[in-house]
């Protein structure tokens, strides 16, 4: 070994790390490759799935978009719609609240910040019963906000807008020097002017990150949507895909795989394109454990 030059040792190190990387990458993408192969395998059961299918075909994809039993395109659209609206509204709520927490001083401020975190760690499973009852009652007074409506679901999602993201966002507000708004304040600017004209433009990058994280979180939610939406037409994608797994799951492996791929694709693209920005946002706080 000692006879190797520094350059040779370095190359050897690279080679070892590449070999290790290949093992890790196999572990990382194996399920994905598996699903891709299942999705283009026309014999669509779990038992007949093979890594390299005997014959290729788009039957599973065609089934998704043509079968009246599974309105897949509708589910996808529902997911995008619900997640987008929730994201825009919840980022607005979060940003306004984070400004107040960062720039204004009031009694109960620290308690509220801690309380928000404690609410987040409360195991919400049984609170679902209360939420279900609430939305049912809302619906009998204002039918547009009741069970089986997207508006009702979004409203419940927004109840969680005052969450961990407030910490994240407040952290970023804190990094902007207060001297900026203090000088504007001296010139007679109101808080609203400082917020909307000075700080908001500076916050644009992090708003995008928090928006993406919020979108992904809503997109991936399953339990709330499952409880509050009743009709197949109203389901978002995750709930719809879950239907595939009920009953003789192993018999519907092919269509499930195709649906899973299409469903995962938008998020995968967002992640891989915006990797660096998201990493920056994530390191500021735990968003996904």
């Amino acid at each position: 070994m000692s006879s190797l030059t520094i350059k040779q040792r370095k190359n050897l190190g690279h080679l070892a790390r590449w070999l290790m990387a290949i093992v890790l990458i196999i572990f990382a993408i194996f399920p994905v490759v598996w699903v891709i192969s299942a999705s283009i395998n026309p014999s669509n059961t779990l038992a007949s799935a093979k890594l390299i299918p005997d014959n290729f075909g788009w039957d599973n994809y065609r089934l998704l978009f043509e079968s009246p039993q599974f309105p897949f395109a509708r589910w996808l659209w529902n997911s995008v719609k619900i997640s987008s609206i929730t994201t825009v509204l919840s980022v607005s709520i979060t940003t306004l609240a984070a400004y107040a927490f960062s720039r204004l001083r009031f009694t109960g401020r620290q308690t509220m910040l801690k309380g928000i975190l404690l609410i987040q760690v409360f195991p919400g499973l049984l609170a679902m019963i209360a939420i279900f009852t609430l939305v049912t009652q809302f619906g009998s007074i204002v039918p547009a906000l009741g069970l089986d409506t997207h508006a009702g679901l979004i409203m419940v999602y927004l109840g969680g807008a005052m969450g961990v993201n407030i910490w994240l966002m407040k952290g970023f507000f804190d990094t902007i020097p207060r001297a900026i708004d203090e000088s504007a304040m001296v010139d007679g600017a109101t808080h609203w002017q400082i917020f909307s004209q000075l700080l908001l433009p500076l916050m644009r990058p992090i708003l995008v990150v928090i928006g993406i994280l919020s979108f992904i979180g809503t997109y991936g939610d399953f339990i709330l949507a499952r409880i509050l939406l009743k009709s197949t037409e109203q389901y978002p994608l995750m709930v719809g895909l879950f239907i595939f797994t009920s009953g003789e799951f192993s018999q519907k492996w092919g269509p499930f795989a195709a649906g899973a791929l299409i469903g995962a694709l938008p998020i995968m693209i967002i992640y891989l394109l915006l990797q660096d920005q998201i990493v920056g946002g994530l390191t500021q706080g735990a968003v996904k454990g």
Partner: peptide
Amino acid sequence: IQSFLLIPYTIPSLITIIIWRGMFNNQVG
């Protein structure tokens, strides 16, 4: 390498848990 290794994180976990469930099936996984 990093992009490939990031892939598990980019798929909604609900989907991947179900995929793993199928892969771990005793008889036909």
